[in-house]
């Protein structure tokens, strides 16, 4: 599927290292982050430190309940950490901002609006309504939904709705996308094509991408780097690089299998389970 139709594609691109363009993605630094929802319940996250480079794709891999969503909310400024701080591009994050947009498992579109109206919201909220006429068709083309602009959001399939949510997140030209298991409600084919497209879009735009997942295959397919979390309390147990070219990421190659097995071993050891489930994600292809 060819997704890039806008001017952004015009940037020269080398096959191995991605686009040779000025980096527009956010730089993230997390210092001594701890969080507890209620004091009595103890800490959900404890003493988290890490750094994410501009334009890097990082997966947060961990079992359900280990605090991945909590961590992502704090990166987005939607939840205030109990201790520590998140610093993006040198500034401490205190509030949410359309510069770093979070996406959820449910597309969470506004069902009384059209696809285009949904996609325009970020511009509308930030007083850039004059850009809507040009920018909205651009982002809808980017996610391959150009012809769906005037349809009601409810008339679309789950995968299409998630693409609209992606367009809505991209419209205000963010520096970072924060994805919280965004494809886990989709069927395997749709999930695979969205995984590829989202990575490609992020790379083409130079966006920083953080994706929360409990699926090893998804992490290998999408991420440059994987942070493996341990639970109770949530801590970063491993920080590992996925050294694969974009071609190798589509699966089937020996390199892919090797990275997948390696990460699976790390994850199983950290999570304390014999054999981490992978969901039916075509890892054998």
């Amino acid at each position: 599927m060819v997704l890039m139709k806008s001017k952004e594609l015009a940037m020269p691109k080398s096959p191995e290292t991605g686009p040779a363009r000025p980096l527009t993605g956010a730089h993230v630094a997390v210092f001594g982050l701890s969080h507890s929802y209620r004091k009595a319940d103890g800490r959900v996250l404890e003493n988290i430190d890490f750094e994410i480079n501009q334009g890097e794709v990082v997966a947060l891999l961990g079992r359900s309940g280990c605090g991945k969503s909590t961590l992502l909310h704090m990166l987005a400024g939607l939840t205030k950490p109990s201790e520590g701080e998140v610093v993006i591009n040198g500034n401490t994050v205190l509030d949410p901002s359309p510069k770093w947009v979070m996406m959820f498992q449910a597309p969470s579109l506004y069902p009384w609006m059209t696809v285009a109206q949904n996609a325009a919201l970020g511009l509308k909220f930030t007083r850039r309504s004059d850009e809507i006429a040009t920018r909205v068709p651009e982002v809808l083309d980017l996610v391959d939904l150009g012809s769906f602009a005037d349809r009601n959001a409810q008339e679309l399939s789950g995968g299409q709705q998630q693409r609209v949510a992606l367009a809505r997140s991209l419209a205000p030209r963010p520096e970072m996308l924060l994805l919280d298991e965004p494809f886990s409600a989709l069927d395997a084919f749709t999930r695979r094509s969205l995984q590829q497209d989202v990575r490609r879009i992020a790379k083409d735009l130079g966006l920083t991408l953080v994706i929360v997942t409990h699926d090893v295959g998804e992490a290998v397919r999408m991420a440059d780097r994987v942070l493996v979390l341990r639970s109770n309390p949530g801590r970063i147990a491993e920080d590992t690089t996925i050294a694969l070219t974009d071609d190798e990421r589509s699966g089937g190659s020996e390199a892919f299998s090797r990275e997948h097995s390696r990460l699976m071993a790390v994850y199983s050891q950290v999570a304390g389970i014999g054999d981490a489930p992978t969901e039916n994600d075509f890892t054998q292809i």
Binding site: P96, Y110, F125, P172
Partner: peptide, 27 residues
């Protein structure tokens, strides 16, 4: 109201006025 509608609005830069008139009242 789906709580994520409010979260998305807040994330995309909605002020309380936007939240009321663009999200809550239509919902």
């Amino acid at each position: 109201i789906d709580p994520s509608w409010l979260k998305v609005a807040r994330n995309l830069g909605a002020n309380p006025f936007h939240t009321l008139f663009v999200v809550i009242l239509p919902a």
